Each structure stands twice: as structure tokens, then as C-alpha cells.
Simulated assay, not measured.
Amino acid sequence: MAKKNSINNDFLKSVRNDLSPKVYDLVLKLVNENREDMAKIVLKVDYLLEYTSNCIKARDYDEARETLDGARKRIDMLKNEGEDVSYLEYLYEGINKKCK
């Protein structure tokens, strides 16, 4: 069976332009392992981190902390499944430092 990519998979096609290359590589790996459920969690973490960054820019630190907690729980869930989430953790730590 051929590997899935953004040309032959609608899910990957819909998310390709919205993700950074490293996050897209993780999603692509998960989809090719038939783990679309985990790929959707990666998308959620990416969205939550982006939303947290926007909250910090708007100086809404309470909402940012709450959203970071949700992202942390999902990152831990992915980590418990044995996925390489080092880049998501790197993003998380960078955003967490900005949150007062």
C-alpha cells in the first residue's frame, strides 16, 4: 500500500498549509501508521499553542494559563503513546516562559 500524503489523503490536504513543517511531519507519520486519532490530537495541541500565543499578545494571561494546561495534558497523552513530541514541547516551553 502506498504511503499517504497530501495528494492522496483529504485530511492531510486540509491541514498541510496550516502547520509548520515539523508538526506536519509528525501528523504525516501518524496518519501513515493509521493513527489519525493521535494526529487530530497533534492538531489540537498546535491550535492551543497558537491560541495561547495570541492570548499572551492580548495580555489575557488567565486564559493563556488555562489553555496551556489543556495543551500540556494532550502533549502528555501523546508522550504516553510513545510519540516523539519534542518539537511540541519546545513550543510549549517557549510560550510558557512568556506567560506571566
Score class of each variant (00 low, 15 high):
Val15Gln: 05
Asp25Lys: 12
Asp46Thr: 04
Asp37Val: 00
Tyr51Leu: 13
Arg16Leu: 05
Lys13Trp: 12
Tyr24Thr: 04
Leu26Ser: 04
Ala39Arg: 08
Val31Cys: 04
Leu43Asp: 09
Tyr47Pro: 11
Pro21Ser: 09
Lys44Ala: 09
Asn9Lys: 05
Arg16Ile: 04
Ser14Met: 11
Glu50Pro: 03
Ile41Arg: 05
Leu12Met: 00
Leu43Ser: 09
Leu48His: 06
Lys29Ile: 03
Pro21Phe: 01
Asp37Trp: 05
Ser14Asp: 14
Val45Glu: 09
Ser14Asn: 11
Pro21Arg: 03
Glu33Arg: 10
Ser20Pro: 06
Ser20Gly: 06
Leu19Ile: 01
Val31Leu: 07
Arg16Asp: 11
Asp18Met: 04
Arg35Ile: 02
Lys29Leu: 09
Lys40Glu: 09
Tyr24Asn: 05
Lys22Tyr: 13
Leu19Gly: 07
Val15Glu: 11
Tyr51Phe: 12
Asn9Tyr: 03
Asp46Ile: 06
Ser14Lys: 15
Val42Asp: 07
Lys44His: 09
Glu36Cys: 08
Lys22Pro: 04
Asp25Val: 03
Glu33Cys: 07
Thr52His: 15
Tyr47Asp: 15
Ala39Ile: 01
Lys22Val: 06
Asn17Arg: 14
Glu36His: 04
Leu12Lys: 02
Lys29Cys: 10
Pro21Trp: 08
Glu36Trp: 01
Asp25Leu: 06
Asp25Gln: 14
Tyr47Trp: 15
Leu26Gly: 05
Lys13Phe: 07
Arg16Glu: 11
